[in-house]
């Protein structure tokens, strides 16, 4: 009985209007995924768990459910966050990165290859990672090219180490296998699907 009381005390609401708000968040993410490098803002007020950014909470509420196991980085996996996501999404929170359809991380992972990249025959099984960072900027040092981008576009993701882009570029050789990334900061999100080529202008990070 105690645990139930605790749960209800710490549990904050999810979407106030699930039908229209999940559609709104999905369209934000669809725009972001279709136009890599374009920064989309979730225009919603959700009182989510403290460790999660608004955009991360919103994406989880809109897209994660019992069919999609969710990996939470240890730093984010507070009891409040786990309870919130389990209750509102009906999802399983897992600790084995390989089995996750979605992952929410604080900063880029040390090793991308610990996540599922799908198979050549079923590349859609590759994970979608939601990565929380401090800020997202529209000006460099990253230059993006690929589907969804007219010519090229610039993006700044401060704090993401150069080694991460190297590791990601290596992973891209295995296309169509791959991992799709959504960087979030507060209410903002920017997506880098597996097809986006990222070049780091030399000497910067």
């Amino acid at each position: 009985m105690m645990s139930v009381e605790n749960t209800t005390q710490t549990l904050t609401p999810g979407f106030s209007d699930p039908v229209s708000q999940s559609q709104l968040v999905f369209r934000c993410l669809l725009d972001a995924m279709a136009r890599p490098g374009s920064i989309e803002t979730v225009d919603l007020d959700i009182e989510g768990p403290e460790t999660l950014d608004l955009a991360a909470t919103a994406i989880a509420l809109a897209l994660v459910d019992f069919e999609t196991p969710l990996y939470l980085a240890p730093a984010l996996a507070t009891p409040a966050a786990e309870t919130y996501l389990k209750f509102h999404c009906g999802t399983r929170i897992i600790t084995e990165a390989k089995d996750a359809a979605f992952g929410i991380l604080d900063g880029t992972p040390e090793d991308l290859s610990t996540f599922n990249t799908g198979t050549e025959e079923y590349p859609e099984l590759g994970a979608t990672l939601i990565i929380q960072i401090e800020t997202i900027r529209t000006n460099g040092p990253l230059t993006l090219t690929g589907p969804g981008i007219k010519d090229s576009t610039e993006l700044g993701l401060p704090g993401v180490p150069a080694s991460f882009w190297d590791a990601r570029a290596k992973l891209q050789r295995y296309f169509p296998r791959g991992i799709d990334l959504v960087f979030v900061s507060g209410a903002e999100m920017v997506a880098l699907p597996r097809t986006t080529n990222v070049t780091l202008q030399s000497g910067k990070e």
């Binding site: 699930p18 039908v19 229209s20 999940s22 559609q23 999905f26 993410l29 669809l30 995924m33 279709a34 809109a62 897209l63 459910d65 069919e67 999609t68 590349p123 859609e124 590759g126 979608t128 589907p147 969804g148 169509p176 791959g178 799709d180 699907p193 597996r194 097809t195």
Partner: peptide, 27 residues
């Protein structure tokens, strides 16, 4: 009816498929 006929769980499943479709053009 729910908004746009389909139930929310079905929409989530379709939305996830659309996002992966966009990430892997033509697949």
């Amino acid at each position: 009816y729910n908004f746009a006929y389909l139930d929310e769980q079905t929409k989530r499943m379709i939305r996830r498929a659309i996002l992966k479709g966009v990430a892997i053009p033509g697949y």
